[in-house]
Structures are given as C-alpha cells and as structure tokens.
C-alpha cells in the first residue's frame, strides 16, 4: 500500500482545516472499508488520510422523543444500526437494508456516512434514508448547510459535497402514524454481494388502514444514483392500496427506472424484479401497519 500520513482531528472544524491545508492530496476516512481497498488497489493515492473516527459525537444515534426526530451520526456503523432495537422496531426499512451489507466484519467497520458519500448506484444504506425523507447536515469551509438525502447524489462516485465538506449527520423527521416500510436487497445472495436491484417502499395510510396518504418507492442499481420512482409514488397516493394497485405501481417504477445490462444481471430481469418486489414490499408495509394497529387496538 502506498504510504500516507494519517491525521487525527479531534473536531469537525479541525478536520476541515486539515483538508484546507492539504487540499486534493488529502482524503477523509471513516470506516475505511472503501478508502483502504482503493488505496491498496492503487485506485487512489492520497498523501494524507484524515481519520474521522476519533471525533467525539459523530457516532450519535438517538431519537428525540419530543419531536420524534431521529439523528444518525455519519460515523454510526451498519452494525450499530442493525443491533439497535429502536431501528429494528421503528425503522424496519433501515434494518432490512443495513443487516445485509457485506459481512458482519464489514458492518462493524463501515459507516452510514461512508456509504452515502461513496455514492455508488447500489449503496444499500442510501435507499431507506431517501424513503424516510432524511436530510444530510454538511459542514465545510463555508459553514454548515442541509441537503435532502435524495439530492446528495450527482452520478456514480460523485455527490454535491464541495471539496473539504464533511457529512456530520442525517436527520429523519418524525414518522407519520400508520407508517410501514421495508427494503429488499435482491440478488443471488444477500451477504457479500452487491444487489442486482435494491427496492425500498414506505407507505403511510389513513385511519381506514387502506387509503395511501404518502408513498415512497426508492430504487438502487436502477440508474446512475439511488433514486425515487415518483410516478409510481403518485399512482399510489390518495388511493386504497391493493395488490393490483401495487403491481401497477411496480410496473410504473420499472418503466421509469434506468436499469442496464451488467455482469450481475440483465436489464429485463431487473425490471421484472422491480415489478414483483415493489408489490411484495408494499404488502410487507401494510402487514407492518396492520400488526401495529392490532397491537395498539387501532389506537395508532
């Protein structure tokens, strides 16, 4: 591996200043599961790696019980999310997505922030955060700013972050009552494979438990960046959700996707799987909503 100097800032501001000093010869590192592989393979050769792991507070994971807002620090690892009861019980779409990233070893190191900023079309961590209407808080030389997670991605390996900007955390607004959400990493095998296609669905329904008041359908590996299928979402909103309607939504989502042929699979197969899996994930959402409604005696 090409030698580099490892810098260990104690605050985000210090990290940004270090980047300002070394510019393009520096690179931020979180879990390193992407950066170290690239340095080893010679795909990048920074002179300085700025290690974000020692900055206190960047790995906070908590829900504000007054506002209902969830905060996920950028340095929170996939394993921390997978093992959090809060995430499993209240944000199943996040649990579904992170619990099959790489292997446990990779999840113990890899962070949600690194997953987003890496900006691959298949980033499993991005889909749920888009579906949950997450916002990314960035800190850089020019101060702080917020960007919706869905607008973070420009193209493969490129985000809207300007040089030196750091992702501090992601916030998720309070979820509406009667929300269900689910994700599937679809491929030959979930562990240690990139998905053939990633499908996340989030549904909010009215008090009647069938009329959809909000729909999010988010796809990975269905275009250059993780994306929402908005025509399919529009189709669902305002209507009673049935299996037939979900199939129609799946068909629309497949049509508006930009899937391609690749070594892992053919475009037609990806489209077919979008169609099927949008329906299945939609039904899973309804099951979750109904289960919760029963538990609370329709007091949801």
């Amino acid at each position: 591996m090409k030698p580099f100097t490892l810098l260990t800032p104690a605050t985000v501001e210090e990290a940004v200043a270090m980047f300002g000093q070394h510019k393009e010869t520096a690179r931020y590192m979180a879990g390193g599961t992407d950066v170290i592989v690239k340095v080893k393979e010679g795909w990048m050769g920074p002179d300085y790696l700025i290690n974000l792991k020692q900055i206190p507070g960047l790995d906070e994971l908590h829900k504000n019980e007054n506002t209902g807002e969830l905060t996920i620090g950028s340095l929170v690892t996939h394993a921390m999310l997978e093992q959090s009861l809060l995430i499993r019980n209240e944000y199943p779409i996040i649990y579904d997505a992170v619990s099959n990233i790489g292997s446990l070893q990779v999840r113990n190191m890899g962070t949600i922030g690194g997953n987003l900023i890496n900006a691959v079309p298949s980033a499993d961590g991005a889909i749920p955060l888009i579906a949950l209407d997450g916002t990314a808080l960035l800190a850089g030389p020019a101060g702080e700013r917020s960007v919706p997670v869905k607008d973070l991605f420009v193209k493969p390996y490129e985000t809207v972050l300007t040089p030196g900007e750091i992702l501090r955390k992601i916030t998720i607004p309070a979820q509406a009552k009667r929300t269900g959400s689910a994700y599937i990493k679809f491929g030959r095998r979930a562990a240690m494979e990139l998905p053939l296609i990633g499908i996340g669905v989030l549904l909010v329904v009215d008090e009647d438990l069938v009329t959809c008041t909000r729909a999010r359908i988010c796809l990975g590996v269905a275009g250059p960046t993780p994306r929402r299928a908005q025509k399919a979402e529009d189709l669902l909103e305002g209507k009673p959700v049935t299996a037939t309607l979900l199939t129609e939504a799946g068909t629309l989502a497949a049509e508006e996707s930009q899937v391609r042929d690749s070594v892992r699979g053919q475009a037609w197969h990806r489209k077919e799987m979008i169609r099927v899996q949008v329906r299945r994930m939609g039904i899973k959402c309804l099951d979750i909503i109904n289960q919760k409604a029963q538990q609370t005696g329709r007091q949801v």
């Binding site: 599961t33 592989v37 070893q105 990779v106 190191m109």
Partner: peptide, 21 residues
C-alpha cells in the same frame, strides 16, 4: 475484506484486519 481469513476481534467486534489501520 472479501474472505474473512484475516478476522480478529477489536474491542469485542470481529473486523477484517486487512482493512483496519
């Protein structure tokens, strides 16, 4: 990070020592 042959435990967590500085 693909094969796990290098797995060691750091503070109770299994990690790939080939990717851990």
């Amino acid at each position: 990070g693909e094969c796990g042959a290098c797995t060691v435990i750091v503070d109770q967590l299994a990690i790939n020592s080939c990717l851990f500085l």
